[in-house]
Simulated assay, not measured.
Amino acid sequence: MKTVKKITISAVIIALYVVIMFVSQGFAFGQYQIRIATSLYSLSYVYPFLIVPLGLANFLSNTVMGGLGPLDMIGGALAGIITSGAVYLVRKFNWNMWLITIPLVLGPGLLVPIWLSKLLNIPYSVLAPGLCIGQIIPAAAGVFIVQVVNKHIKGKIG
Rank of each mutant, 00 (worst) to 15 (best):
Y41Q: 02
V52H: 12
G80F: 01
F93K: 13
V18G: 13
P123E: 09
I82E: 04
A79M: 14
I145P: 04
A11K: 04
I100G: 02
V19P: 03
L119P: 03
K6P: 11
N94A: 13
T101P: 03
P113A: 00
G155W: 09
N58Q: 09
V126E: 15
P70M: 15
M97C: 13
I9P: 07
A77H: 11
A79V: 14
I14T: 13
I133K: 09
F29V: 11
Y124P: 02
S10V: 10
N94L: 09
I13T: 13
G55R: 07
I20H: 09
K6A: 10
L119F: 10
G69S: 07
L116D: 06
I9W: 01
V19G: 01
G85C: 05
K154S: 14
G55L: 08
T101D: 00
T83K: 03
V146A: 01
L50R: 06
G130T: 03
Q33W: 05
L104H: 09
F22N: 14
S42M: 03
G107D: 08
V143R: 00
N121W: 10
I102T: 04
G107M: 01
T101G: 14
L68M: 13
I100Q: 05
F22H: 14
L89P: 07
I74P: 04
V23F: 13
L68A: 11
I82Y: 08
W98D: 02
A15Q: 07
L40R: 09
L119V: 08
H152G: 04
M97T: 12
M73A: 02
V87T: 08
N58C: 10
I102R: 03
A139G: 00
A139F: 06
T38A: 02
Q25Y: 10
P103Q: 06
Q147C: 10
K156E: 13
I20G: 09
I51L: 06
K156W: 11
N121F: 02
Y88T: 03
Q135E: 15
V23M: 10
L68V: 11
S24F: 07
S10G: 15
L56F: 15
Y88Q: 00
G55M: 08
A11C: 12
I114G: 04
L131P: 00
A141R: 00
L43F: 02
L16C: 09
I157R: 09
V12E: 13
Y124G: 12
P70W: 05
D72L: 11
S39W: 02
I81Q: 12
Y45K: 00
T101R: 11
W98T: 11
G67W: 05
Q25N: 10
Y41C: 12
G76A: 06
L50A: 02
C132G: 12
K92T: 06
M97P: 04
V87C: 05
C132Q: 05
P113L: 04
A139T: 00
V112S: 00
P108G: 15
G107W: 01
V90D: 06
Y41V: 08
I122Q: 07
L71H: 04
M97L: 14
